[in-house]
């Protein structure tokens, strides 16, 4: 997990936890063995978590290759 945000400021414990969840969702979204109920909801959750890491300056990237 990054120790600093996009502007180089130290991340808080709460931000580290959020970034961790985002990373976990990205990893899940890459898998091809999830049932539809998991795959689609993981992607929906990832679309929401993208807002969090973007709003908090933790990450800014595109997710289209993950279908999000």
């Amino acid at each position: 997990m990054p120790e600093r945000d996009l502007l180089g400021r130290p991340v808080t414990k709460m931000e580290t936890e959020l970034a961790h969840i985002y990373g976990e969702l990205k990893a899940l979204a890459k898998r091809d063995d999830l049932p539809p109920c998991a795959e689609r909801n993981v992607k929906k959750a990832l679309a929401c978590m993208w807002q969090v890491v973007n709003d908090l300056d933790l990450e800014f990237e595109q997710l289209y290759d993950l279908g999000v």
């Binding site: 992607k43 679309a47 993208w50 289209y64 279908g67």
Partner: peptide, 11 residues
Amino acid sequence: DSAKDWEWISE
């Protein structure tokens, strides 16, 4: 809009 884009719109 993709799912991420659409979520950003409401954000």
